Amino acid sequence: MGFGSLRVRATIGSTWTNSISPDSAWTSYLLPIKRAIRPTEDFDAGDIATVTVELIYL
């Protein structure tokens, strides 16, 4: 992973693997929600979700 990204397994209802990337402006990480997950979980831009994130160690 480059630029400080970390490989994770994310769960909202559906579970998927992805990478989170550091966001220095917010001193946090960004988790993209895959396009296939958004309609399944009925998410739109601006929605708030509770997400479980597990680090995947390589």
Score class of each variant (00 low, 15 high):
residue 1 M to H: 13
residue 1 M to L: 15
residue 1 M to N: 14
residue 4 G to H: 10
residue 4 G to D: 02
residue 5 S to Y: 10
residue 5 S to L: 00
residue 5 S to Q: 03
residue 5 S to T: 08
residue 5 S to C: 08
residue 6 L to V: 10
residue 6 L to K: 06
residue 7 R to T: 12
residue 8 V to L: 04
residue 8 V to Y: 08
residue 8 V to A: 09
residue 8 V to F: 00
residue 9 R to N: 14
residue 9 R to P: 01
residue 9 R to D: 08
residue 10 A to Q: 07
residue 10 A to V: 14
residue 10 A to R: 00
residue 11 T to C: 09
residue 11 T to E: 11
residue 11 T to S: 14
residue 12 I to G: 01
residue 12 I to E: 09
residue 12 I to M: 10
residue 13 G to D: 15
residue 13 G to C: 05
residue 14 S to T: 14
residue 14 S to N: 12
residue 14 S to Y: 07
residue 14 S to M: 12
residue 15 T to K: 03
residue 16 W to L: 12
residue 16 W to C: 09
residue 16 W to V: 07
residue 17 T to A: 10
residue 17 T to L: 05
residue 18 N to Y: 02
residue 18 N to V: 01
residue 18 N to P: 00
residue 20 I to Q: 13
residue 20 I to L: 09
residue 20 I to E: 06
residue 22 P to Q: 06
residue 23 D to K: 05
residue 23 D to V: 04
residue 24 S to K: 12
residue 24 S to R: 03
residue 24 S to F: 03
residue 25 A to I: 05
residue 25 A to C: 07
residue 27 T to F: 10
residue 27 T to L: 04
residue 28 S to P: 12
residue 28 S to A: 14
residue 29 Y to F: 15
residue 29 Y to G: 02
residue 29 Y to M: 15
residue 29 Y to A: 01
residue 30 L to M: 05
residue 31 L to E: 03
residue 32 P to R: 00
residue 32 P to T: 05
residue 32 P to W: 00
residue 33 I to A: 07
residue 33 I to Q: 03
residue 34 K to T: 01
residue 34 K to R: 10
residue 34 K to F: 01
residue 35 R to Y: 09
residue 35 R to C: 06
residue 35 R to L: 14
residue 35 R to A: 15
residue 35 R to M: 12
residue 35 R to N: 11
residue 36 A to W: 06
residue 37 I to N: 00
residue 37 I to E: 01
residue 37 I to Q: 09
residue 37 I to C: 07
residue 37 I to V: 10
residue 37 I to F: 00
residue 39 P to N: 10
residue 40 T to P: 00
residue 40 T to E: 14
residue 41 E to S: 07
residue 41 E to I: 14
residue 41 E to T: 10
residue 42 D to C: 09
residue 42 D to A: 13
residue 42 D to M: 05
residue 43 F to S: 08
residue 43 F to C: 13
residue 43 F to P: 13
residue 44 D to N: 06
residue 44 D to T: 11
residue 45 A to D: 09
residue 45 A to F: 04
residue 45 A to K: 02
residue 45 A to R: 10
residue 45 A to W: 03
residue 46 G to T: 06
residue 46 G to N: 04
residue 47 D to E: 07
residue 47 D to I: 08
residue 48 I to D: 03
residue 48 I to K: 14
residue 48 I to S: 12
residue 49 A to M: 11
residue 49 A to K: 09
residue 49 A to C: 07
residue 51 V to M: 07
residue 52 T to E: 11
residue 52 T to S: 13
residue 52 T to L: 14
residue 52 T to H: 15
residue 53 V to C: 01
residue 54 E to S: 15
residue 55 L to G: 08
residue 56 I to G: 00
residue 56 I to P: 00
residue 57 Y to A: 12
residue 57 Y to S: 10
residue 57 Y to M: 15
residue 57 Y to F: 11
residue 58 L to H: 08
residue 58 L to C: 05
